[in-house]
Amino acid sequence: MRARHLLAAAALIGSPALAATGQTATALGQAQAMIISPIIAVSLNDLDFGSLTSSRFASGSVTVGSEGGATYAGGTSPACAGGGACAGVAPARFLVSGEPGRSYTVNAPSAISASGTLVSGGSAPSLAIDALEVHLASHAGSVTSIGELDEKGEDRISVGGRLNVPAGTAPAHYRATLTIMVTYS
C-alpha cells in the first residue's frame, strides 16, 4: 500500500513533463509574383502620303491603307513618275514589345491635323487627316484595338489614313504627329 501511494504521486508530478516546450517545427512557404516587363511601341516608319498634286477647282484626298497601297480621289493625283503611287507612300508602322503571350490594347486617334510649310515660305493652312485605321499583325485580316504579343513578346502595328486636300491647296510640306498608346489588357 505504501508503494502504491508513492507511484501515484510520481505520476502526478511527472505530467507537466508531457508539455512539449521547445518543440520546433519549420515549414518552407513561398511567395510568388509575376512582374511584367513594360510594353513599349517604337516607330519603325512614318505614315507617308507621298507627293501629290491637287486641283485648283476640286477637293480630293489620298488614302493610304493600313496594309499598304494608296488610292487617290477627287482632285488629287500622285506626283510621281508613271502616275502610280509614289515609292515612299506607306502606312505608319510600330513595333510593340512586351511580355510574351500577353494581350494589349492600342489607342490611336481617329483624326489628326497636319500643319504645313509653304514651299515659298511661311505657314500653310493645316490639312485634316482622318479615317485613321489601325491594323495589328496579331490579328491579320481584321481591324481591332486588341492585340497579342507573340512568343518573342512582339507585335506590329500599322496605321493608315486619309489626307484631305481642299481645292487650290498651295504647294507645301505637311507634317503631323501621330501618337499611339499601348497598354496591357
Binding site: 508539455a19 512539449a20 516546450t21 521547445g22 518543440q23 520546433t24 517545427a25 519549420t26 515549414a27 518552407l28 512557404g29 513561398q30 511567395a31 510568388q32 509574383a33 509575376m34 512582374i35
Partner: peptide, 12 residues
C-alpha cells in the same frame, strides 16, 4: 517570375 522562399518556424 519571382518565387521567394518564406520559411516559418513555430516553437511550442
Amino acid at each position: 517570375e519571382l518565387a521567394i522562399p518564406v520559411p516559418i518556424v513555430v516553437t511550442v
